[in-house]
Computed example of a mutant assay.
Amino acid sequence: MVDELEKAKPIIIKRVKRKGHDFHGGSWKVAFADFATAMMAFFLLLWLMGNTSEDEKQAISGYFHDPSGFQEKAGSSPAVIGEGGANVAVIEIETIQPETDDIESEISKNEASNKPLSEEELAKLAEQKEIEKLKQLKKELEFLVENSIDFSQFREQVMIDITPSGLRIQIVDKDKRPMFDSGSAEPKYYSKTILRGLANVLKQVPNKLSVTGHTDATPYVERENYGNWELSADRANAARRELLFGGIKEKKIARVEGFSSSILFDQQNPHNPVNRRIAIIVLKRSVAENIEKQVLGVE
């Protein structure tokens, strides 16, 4: 009887269903790859930000604000980025040195016509080509001053012209915005910005530079045996140091001088703040050579 009951018992088989864990699928790999890509892009952005100048950042920002303005503003120059806050200070300046190819071309033309150039004619031709380069540099600097954020508040204080000695850049004082404190040879922070900004362009040309300091006619009497002559010379030397900080090589400086109030910008008003100024001249090669000869006493 017992055997029959045991045989009549139903046999129950329990099966445990195992669920697969989600992380064994492939979706997490896609998410992780996206995360790794985002982190790589983030660290690349940090690296670029740390190795990019303020001017370059402004230019990049301007492009992404208004890419369509690029060609309109830039014309044929790909280095200039258009509207939308772009800074056009990131420019390349051509070498001012007379182009040898141009001069050789002129020589070849004259040789072909059996009219060789004299030394005087060669020198005149070289100077003509150099002046053309100086005029081009003048346009580039004017464009920089007009469009660079660093110069936005000081455009009226930067004057650029061509003189018999070369390309002259004058940074003048303005009422309530002097380059230096009264009686001081330490440049204001914005004066340093201007000088270093100019240096960033001028360092790309081979010509030597002259730096001169000028004061107005107001006598400086706060220190014994120290007047406007000493002050103007010290300010010129301070400007030279800022140019060096901006990338100018020491050997490019041909002359540093102080003129006190002997050469007034506004001769009708000797006390006009504009008379207080720093002048930087990109010297023509012949002028730089004459300075060296004068120092050496060679005729």
Rank of each mutant, 00 (worst) to 15 (best):
E104A: 11
E119T: 09
E99R: 15
G84R: 11
G82M: 01
G82V: 04
S113Q: 13
P98K: 04
S118Y: 08
E92S: 10
L117V: 07
P116M: 10
N114T: 09
E92G: 05
I81W: 04
A112S: 13
E92V: 09
I81Q: 06
N110I: 01
E111V: 09
S105Q: 13
N114W: 09
S118R: 05
G85W: 05
A86T: 06
E104G: 09
E119D: 12
V90Y: 02
T100M: 12
I93Q: 03
I81D: 00
V90I: 13
E106H: 14
P116D: 11
T95K: 06
P98Q: 04
E83P: 10
N87F: 05
I96P: 02
V90A: 06
I93V: 15
G84F: 12
V90L: 11
I81M: 04
A86E: 01
E119R: 03
I81F: 05
E111L: 15
T100H: 06
E119A: 13
I91F: 07
I81G: 02
I107E: 05
E111G: 09
P98R: 01
V80R: 01
V88G: 04
I91C: 03
N114F: 13
T95V: 08
P116G: 10
I103T: 06
D102N: 14
I81V: 15
D102K: 15
K115C: 05
G85T: 07
D101W: 10
I93D: 04
E119G: 04
E106G: 08
E83L: 12
V80L: 12
E99I: 12
I81H: 03
E99Y: 09
V80N: 01
G84D: 03
L117T: 10
S105N: 15
E104P: 00
K109V: 06
A89F: 00
A112Q: 12
S105V: 06
K115V: 11
E83V: 10
S108V: 09
L117A: 07
I93K: 00
I107Q: 10
S108M: 14
L117Q: 07
Q97Y: 11
S105M: 12
A112G: 14
I96N: 00
P98G: 04
Q97T: 10
E99C: 10
P116N: 08
G82A: 00
Q97D: 04
E104I: 11
E92N: 02
P116Y: 03
K109M: 10
E119Q: 09
E119M: 10
E119P: 02
S113R: 14
I91P: 01
E106W: 12
A112C: 07
I107W: 07
G85F: 03
I96E: 01
I91V: 14
Q97V: 11
E94M: 05
K115D: 09
L117Y: 06
S118H: 06
S108D: 10
N87M: 08
K115I: 10
E99S: 15
K115P: 07
G84C: 01
G84L: 08
A89V: 02
S105G: 15
L117F: 07
P116K: 09
V90Q: 02
G82D: 00
A86I: 01
S113K: 14
K115G: 07
G82C: 05
L117R: 03
